[in-house]
């Protein structure tokens, strides 16, 4: 995906620049952007360090485990047909918690494992099961509570209050997730 997207960006940019007479700007932009990316990463190292450090404390002190237990009723409600104690439940729960906490690197492996165990429950069919649809819709509706990356970017680009978007983002995420849950539930009931 990114292969074509990135290639297209550069080819279109240069061709359009040639037509538009903006070739000098393009040279400067290509070099300045690369420099900017490195500067941005220096800010990010600090903020991500704080975040991952805190998450590590949360993990060893059992906060993440406790949060996982708290959302079990929600997982039971969304996936009533997965057998109790099936490993798919565990993977789905881990994926949801990791997404809420913005732990992308932990969310993806758990999510892929969840899909694989849902596939077993689905008799290896190439047609998505109801649970797969529900799981992915919830996942894609975005669950992240604190958009730490965005806060870091805002801080790098001179925001007076980088964190000001936290609560509005939580509200927007909640609304989109609720819409996703309702849609997934309606479709699940229709097809079961």
């Amino acid at each position: 995906m990114l292969n074509y997207l990135w290639g297209a960006m550069i080819i279109i940019g240069i061709v359009y620049g040639a037509i538009n007479g903006t070739m000098t700007n393009i040279t400067a932009a290509a070099l300045d952007s690369a420099k900017e990316a490195v500067e941005l990463c220096i800010t990010m190292v600090g903020i991500m360090g704080v975040w991952v450090g805190l998450m590590r404390i949360a993990e060893v002190s059992g906060i993440i485990k406790a949060a996982t237990n708290k959302i079990k009723p929600f997982v039971d409600f969304m996936f009533p047909t997965i057998p109790k104690n099936h490993k798919a439940r565990e993977y789905i729960t881990t994926n949801i918690i990791a997404n809420i906490l913005g732990l992308g690197w932990a969310a993806t492996p758990a999510g892929l494992m969840a899909m694989e165990s849902l596939k077993e429950l689905n008799h290896d069919s190439e047609k998505a099961s109801v649970d797969m649809c529900t799981f992915l819709i919830i996942n894609i509706s975005s669950l992240q509570l604190i958009p730490i990356n965005i806060i870091a970017y805002r801080s790098q680009y001179g925001s007076a209050n980088p964190g000001i978007i936290t609560a509005p983002a939580i509200v927007a995420t909640t609304i989109s997730t609720i819409v996703g849950i309702i849609f997934a539930k309606i479709m699940a009931v229709k097809h079961q």
């Binding site: 596939k119 649809c133 894609i140 819409v179």
Partner: peptide, 25 residues
């Protein structure tokens, strides 16, 4: 990525649902 991991080709209502969430967001 997720459907490839499960070797699923018929994704049913996942895309409409996901797009609905995104537009809402």
């Amino acid at each position: 990525v997720y459907f490839m991991a499960a070797k699923v080709t018929k994704t049913r209502w996942t895309l409409p649902g996901a797009l609905l969430c995104t537009v809402t967001g």
